[in-house]
């Protein structure tokens, strides 16, 4: 049932991979839906927040 995603070098400029882990509205999805490990989820969340700050991803999307 669990599909473990193995991600290497999560980067905040790589928005194509980041967009897999956010909602239609731009919210970060939970670890259960992303099937990432704990450290990967933390790194991914921080990358998304950095991308939001630099205007690559919106904070809220409609």
């Amino acid at each position: 049932m669990k599909n473990k995603q193995v991600l290497k070098n999560i980067d905040y400029k790589d928005i194509d991979t980041l967009k897999k882990f956010i909602n239609n509205n731009g919210r970060i999805l939970s670890r259960r839906k992303n099937s990432l490990s704990a450290t990967q989820q933390k790194e991914m969340a921080q990358a998304i927040k950095r991308a939001r700050f630099m205007g690559l991803i919106p904070y809220i999307a409609k």
Partner: peptide
């Protein structure tokens, strides 16, 4: 805007 982040020397980016 600008953002300074710690990084590795060898990783390549998009």
């Amino acid at each position: 805007r600008f953002l300074i982040v710690k990084a590795d020397r060898d990783t390549n980016i998009i």
